[in-house]
Simulated scan of single mutants.
Amino acid sequence: MDEKSALREYLRLGRAALLAKLDGLGEYDVRRPMTPTGTNLLGLVKHVAYVQLGYFGEVFGRPSGRPFPWEAEGAEEGVDLWAAPDESRDDVLELFRFAAAHADATVEALPLDAVGEVPWWGDERRHPTLHTILVHVCVEIARHAGHADVLRELLDGSAGLSPGNSNLPERSADEWAAFRARIEDAARQAAGTAVPSGATSGDG
């Protein structure tokens, strides 16, 4: 496998890992904010779609024809990080697939040393190669897939890479609870707040 093919494969794997975190969830759970800053699963997918449209579109003079939501009059910052009630899950998934196909076409059409322009980057790195952009986007998608891992586990306890390949040790619920308890105990010991033997963390 050559270098471009390897990078495209990591891009594909990152996309698949992110999308898999939506499987089996209802409309509320894919949209509900799970952190104080509003991080949510469908918003991560929507955001990554626009990341791909920007970096593999305008950056290389290959605009997709899709408008960016933050360009609309009166749009608030972060509009790409959540889905409005009138945006269906299918709408967001269609956008994601379109963005992935557009990105793949750019990667296919250009050599790795093709130079683009990223207007929102500083002057010293404003003109990266396609190779640099591929690495950058792979890292960004992996970061957001990691966010999605945590959100999904908080939502319903599902953890791991995918149902067919969790990439986690095989443990029962009780074994996971004991494992977590050992980590909690280690953290308390390190912080000097260990619970005395025979007591529980809820004891006053």
Rank of each mutant, 00 (worst) to 15 (best):
T39H: 12
F179Q: 10
G24F: 06
R125A: 14
L130Y: 02
G54I: 09
G198T: 03
K21T: 06
L81G: 08
G43M: 00
P36D: 14
L81H: 10
L53I: 02
P67R: 04
L44S: 07
L134P: 05
H102Y: 00
W176F: 00
A99Q: 05
G57Y: 00
V92L: 02
V137Y: 03
A84V: 03
V107I: 15
L7N: 00
E140F: 07
A194E: 12
A6C: 11
E117V: 14
T129C: 03
L154H: 14
H144V: 03
P119G: 01
D29F: 02
M1A: 15
G61Y: 05
L154I: 14
V79T: 13
K4A: 10
S172A: 04
V115C: 04
L134T: 03
D2M: 08
S201L: 13
G157C: 03
V48C: 15
L22E: 04
R143S: 12
Q52R: 08
P67H: 00
G65K: 01
W120A: 05
S162H: 10
S64R: 01
A49C: 10
D90Y: 02
G146S: 09
V135L: 15
P36R: 09
A142I: 09
A16W: 10
Y55P: 03
D90G: 12
F60Q: 01
L161F: 15
A199N: 09
D2R: 07
L110Y: 06
F60W: 05
G57S: 00
G74M: 07
A159F: 08
V48G: 10
D185M: 06
A173H: 11
L93R: 06
